[in-house]
Amino acid sequence: MDRRRILQGAAVTAAAALLPASVRAVAASTGETDYAQAAWAPASTSNYTSANRPSSHPVDLVVLHVTQATFSNTVGIFANPAKQVSAHYVVRSSDGYIAQCLREKDIGWHAGSWDHNTRSIGIEHEGWVDQPSYFTSTMYERSARLTADVCDRHGISKDRAHIIGHHQIPGSDHTDPGSNWDWGRYIRLVNLV
């Protein structure tokens, strides 16, 4: 095993210790994540559709969300088979820690539209739309690196037509990421990577 894998495994183990015991119990690592800086915290298989993207469905969007809950509660919701919801990633406010909850090849249930779910990667951000203090510099920076990596791997343009908010999904009754989300800053950061 090379040094990089050992260090990555140690980082995942240390990161998992920050999750509540109820989440750690179901968050046993299955190996590598799609994004090297993420820790594996699996959603229940009842909360997404297994697929083989991009072969089965092309991926051409990143959809940004705000959790309206804490980081640990969100990861716990995705792990609960009764909830019928999941996104690919959750980014913590305080330190930008990233949990991957399902593989990018699979279809998350996050956008409220089957068409948009099939063609997107969903990224949740810890916080509340009306509390901009949750949108920390670290969160913006780490999330932007994640989004840039997703865009690079899937050939997605790094612009507002392809990196969208949940509120932009046709028929959505959601407002996230909300008026306090700094889109100009975020897209600049995505393009700096």
Rank of each mutant, 00 (worst) to 15 (best):
D115L: 13
A28P: 00
L192A: 15
R4E: 15
R188G: 06
C151F: 07
G31C: 07
A28M: 00
P177G: 05
D106T: 09
K158A: 07
T175C: 08
T30I: 14
R188Y: 10
I156D: 01
A16K: 12
P58K: 04
V62L: 06
P20E: 13
I121G: 00
C151E: 04
H116T: 12
I187R: 01
A10M: 15
A144P: 08
P42T: 01
L7N: 12
V91G: 02
Q8H: 14
T74D: 06
H174Q: 10
T136E: 05
H162R: 09
A36I: 13
W181A: 08
D115W: 09
D106N: 14
H125Q: 05
R119F: 05
S93M: 02
A69V: 01
S157R: 11
T45H: 09
S46D: 15
E104M: 13
H57E: 04
I187V: 09
A51L: 06
S94K: 02
R185I: 04
M1V: 11
R3Q: 14
Y48V: 00
G112R: 05
T70M: 08
I164S: 03
K83D: 08
R5L: 14
L61D: 00
A69H: 02
D2E: 05
G165K: 07
L7T: 15
V90L: 11
G155Q: 11
D115Y: 13
M1Q: 03
R103Q: 09
G155L: 12
S157N: 14
T33I: 06
L192F: 08
G31K: 07
E141R: 12
L102R: 01
A99S: 13
H154A: 15
T70A: 11
S94W: 03
P54Y: 13
P58C: 04
N117E: 10
C101W: 04
V91S: 01
V90M: 12
Y140C: 00
G31P: 04
F135C: 05
T13Q: 07
A69K: 04
S143F: 01
N191I: 11
I6E: 15
S172P: 03
F71W: 02
H110S: 10
D60I: 03
L146G: 04
G31A: 05
N52W: 06
R145Y: 00
C151S: 05
S133K: 07
H125R: 05
V90N: 06
S44W: 05
I98A: 02
A25H: 12
R24G: 11
Q168W: 07
T67V: 03
R188W: 12
W128P: 01
N73R: 10
D152C: 08
I107D: 01
H154S: 12
C101M: 11
V91M: 00
P170K: 09
V90G: 08
D34W: 12
S157Q: 15
V12W: 14
A79W: 03
T67W: 02
S94T: 13
T147I: 15
S56V: 00
